[in-house]
Design a protein around this nucleic acid. Structure first.
Length: 515
RNA sequence: GGUGACGUGACCGAGUGGCUAGGUAGAGGUCUGCAAAACCUCCUACAGCGGUUCGAAUCCGCUCGUCACCUCCA
């Protein structure tokens, strides 16, 4: 009997038990990266959180379709005055094809996500591969009276949409009148828009713009909110279960997404549940490209960022991210990462321990195991409390440590396993293993270097060999035989691992077995 | 200015009316050839000032401090 999973919904500003629209199927969409540069740690939080979410939904028995897009068109550089697409701007500087840049960073991103233990999404749609769908959507928006064309560009008519009672601002809690009052009216390039709140659905490309597609309005490119509306609708339907992204995407990106979707398919909030993960901070400030205080994934894994003293492994980073609740900010520091690394390793040591929790032969099970069973079962059950409460992985990890302390205590004195029933113990070890590996996605990360370990083994091999030869020369055949036995054992063990020892005139070496 | 969030012990970070969060670091102990790991014990905090309440870190008010978003260049 699994307690229900509750999720905090940005739309309603409260937690509610999760109810799929069409159980057992669950559609999940996460706004993916813009692939014009390398992702930083902040960009990894959403994917890790949603990886846990989809893993847990599957664990609960749902059939999940998880979509995470790649934005390879559209976004403009914040300070660009050319009106150029970010990707093409970068491409021109490097004399590369824009799609080459996009491909390069897409691959890098996916490698990093895989290293972080994120299972690949079921569908990874590219914005550039869905131009037709986006054009169709624009046409629908225009036909429904919520879009207009100016000079080959198409804009979404926010005042018209809002006048129709569709609630622009309902996600981010904004009032159109206040937005209008707060907006500066001296902005350049506003003349094409009827209202400063309007946003582009299609932009006509100027002659320097490299990425461009034909459309009924002009040769150009789609607006940056549109892709998610179009692609989520294509793969998950006009209304699906869960849509996620960073808190900074709530406005305007997600607000505009809802508006676009609803302009086509009223009524819909595009997704039933909207989830937003909070930001990662550095010295209390949001990590961002603009501030320049970001740490890229490569820098983190390789220890090449000056903010940090050393490299941190992907699993350490994953643990670090999950040790905080996703709606809280999390401050990244050396101390915090080092603490995370130790915590992560402690959990991994726990994993290695589980199979060793066996009552020693000859020890009798205690007749009454009720007390110990109850204690262990409570510790196990607690592990699910946190994750069911809006994916509170911090609490789940805390509970796992509490469970682990008990399991460690049993391991330290195996005879005490007599006090607990096999059923309760199995339940506990299964809970631990399942949550750590399958749900939190924390995998053992081998740190030992095979070459070094082999070298170490061969050192002992050499010592044994010297001892054997010396004993033989001294005529002590009994001693020699003993050491030759050691040598044979090492050889046999290594051979089982596909390694052969090579005794050469130059010394002892090894090679992969060719058998 | 508008909207929202936050301020927890040496550090990170849960909790949100009464009950041990947890991890890391530190202290003592058990174990141990030495050590490590593990286990046991300790360090028991909630920005400040008021208020509500039998009782507040948790609710309310004020003060101080911090942060995010408020789009354009699309």
């Amino acid at each position: 009997m699994q307690p229900t999973l509750s999720l905090y919904n940005t739309l309603t500003r409260r937690k509610a038990p999760f109810q799929p629209l069409n159980a057992p199927f669950v559609g999940v969409y996460l706004c993916g990266p813009t692939v014009y540069s390398e992702a930083h740690v902040g960009n990894a939080r959403g994917p890790v959180v949603f990886d846990v979410l989809t893993r847990y939904l599957r664990h609960l028995g749902y059939t999940v379709r998880y979509v995470r897009n790649i934005t390879d068109v559209g976004h403009l550089e914040g300070d660009a005055d050319e009106g150029e697409d970010k990707i093409s701007k970068r491409a021109r500087a490097q004399q590369l094809e824009p799609m080459q840049v996009a491909e390069q960073y897409t691959n890098l991103y996916q490698n990093h996500m895989e290293a972080l233990g994120c299972l690949p999404p079921d569908i990874t749609p590219r914005a550039s591969g869905h131009i037709i769908e986006q054009i169709e959507m624009i046409q629908q928006i225009i036909n429904n009276g919520f879009g207009y064309e100016t000079n080959g560009s198409v804009y979404f008519d926010v005042p018209a949409y809002n006048a129709a009672g569709r609630g622009y601002g309902k996600l981010s809690n904004r009032v159109v009148e206040e937005l209008l009052a707060g907006s500066r009216d001296n902005l350049a390039g506003q003349d094409e828009k009827r209202s400063p709140l309007d946003f582009a659905l299609w932009k006509k490309a100027d002659e320097r713009h490299l990425m461009r597609w034909a459309s009924p309005w002009s040769e150009g490119f789609p607006g940056w909110h549109l892709e998610c509306s179009a692609m989520s609708r294509k793969y998950l339907g006009a209304e699906f279960d869960i849509h996620g992204g960073g808190l900074d995407l709530m406005f305007p990106h997600h607000e505009c997404e809802i508006a676009q979707s609803q302009a086509c398919n009223h009524p819909t909030n595009e997704a039933q549940v909207w989830m937003h993960n909070n930001m990662i901070t550095v010295n209390g400030q949001k990590m961002s490209k603009a501030l320049g205080n970001f740490i890229t994934m490569s820098q983190l894994f390789e220890g090449t960022n000056t903010t940090l003293s050393q490299a941190y492994s992907p699993m350490t980073v994953r643990f670090f991210l999950l040790q905080a609740h996703y709606r809280s900010t999390i401050d990244i520091t050396d101390d915090a990462l080092q603490a995370a690394r130790k915590g992560y390793r402690k959990l991994m040591n726990g994993l290695r321990l589980l199979d060793k929790l066996v009552l020693p032969q000859g020890t009798e099970q205690t007749a009454d195991t009720a007390a110990a069973d109850a204690e262990l079962r409570k510790l196990s059950a607690d592990c699910y409390t946190g994750i069911n409460d809006d994916l509170n992985t911090a609490r789940t990890i805390a509970s796992l440590f509490n469970l682990l302390r008990k399991l460690n205590a049993y391991a330290a004195n195996l005879a005490t396993l007599a006090q607990v029933s096999t059923e309760a113990l199995t339940e506990a070890t299964t809970t631990f293993r399942t949550l750590v590996q399958d749900v939190l996605g924390l995998q053992d990360e081998p740190r030992a270097n095979v070459e070094d370990l082999l070298g170490l083994t061969l050192d002992f091999y050499k010592i044994a060999k010297q001892s054997a030869n010396q004993a033989r020369e001294e005529g002590n055949m009994e001693e020699a035989t003993k050491h030759y036995g050691e040598i044979d054992r090492i050889r046999a063990a290594l051979k089982d691992q596909g390694i052969v020892v090579k005794d050469t005139k130059a010394g002892v070496d090894w090679a992969y077995s060719e058998e």
